[in-house]
């Protein structure tokens, strides 16, 4: 993928990434994994795994991480600038017009924002399914996924700790995430890359 192509694709993603990380991931999964096949679902999960351990805006970090995979440091810089540019310009416009629109916002925007957020939630669940299929392949993996979700909702545990704990679990017992434990058949050793699903 050429750098100008990368630039325009991330401008498009940045323009449509309403609702934060969820839609950003959905768009990356749609455009870069499904349509163009320059990345795999595992690449996206890998980017999420390591950026969740680092402080900062996860969306920008995932874009930087995958931009690096697609075009080295120039790719990382271009993808991130393109991703942030639409949001930055919109915020700038809102900042300039702030006095005029501050009064009008609020109640009038709520139903529209609810509709948008409901759509975001639906799209995100579809993305969770697509990214989850290659990432959750064993019973132990399913337990970890459900546990991370439940602990995060019930106790508001910090995502970075949950990822770290699951990662250490993976170092200690890697075979529980690679083997089909029900049938006992051995899955092939995972590599860094895999074919698109």
């Amino acid at each position: 993928m050429s750098l100008p192509q990368l630039w325009w694709l991330f401008i498009k993603i940045g323009l449509a990434a309403f609702g934060g990380l969820g839609v950003t991931l959905s768009l990356i999964e749609r455009y870069l994994v499904m349509d163009r096949r320059v990345l795999t679902a595992k690449d996206v999960t890998e980017a999420l795994t390591y950026t969740k351990l680092l402080p900062g805006s996860t969306g920008v970090q995932v874009v930087g991480y995958l931009g690096y995979r697609l075009g080295g440091w120039p790719g990382a810089a271009l993808a991130t600038l393109a991703f942030l540019l639409p949001a930055f310009l919109l915020i700038l416009i809102l900042s300039v017009l702030y006095e005029e629109i501050a009064a009008g916002l609020g109640n009038a925007a709520t139903p529209a924002l609810r509709g948008l957020t409901a759509a975001v939630a639906g799209i995100l669940v579809a993305t969770i399914y697509r990214l989850g299929k290659p990432a959750v392949t064993t019973p132990a993996g399913a337990v970890v996924a459900v546990a991370a979700c439940a602990l995060g909702i019930a106790f508001r545990m910090n995502p970075a700790w949950l990822v770290l704990a699951a990662g250490v679990f993976g170092i200690l017992m890697p075979q529980s995430f690679t083997q089909e434990q029900i049938s006992g058949t051995e899955a092939p050793t995972p590599k860094g890359e895999s074919a698109p699903q």
């Binding site: 795994t49 948008l116 957020t117 995100l124 990214l131 990432a135 996924a145 993976g170 995430f177």
Partner: peptide, 26 residues
Amino acid sequence: QGFGLGAAPAVIGLLGITAFALGRYA
């Protein structure tokens, strides 16, 4: 490799938290 294997399902689970929070609001 082991870290990635264990952490990947957790990352998927974390996305579920986001979906839950969005759904609860919307």
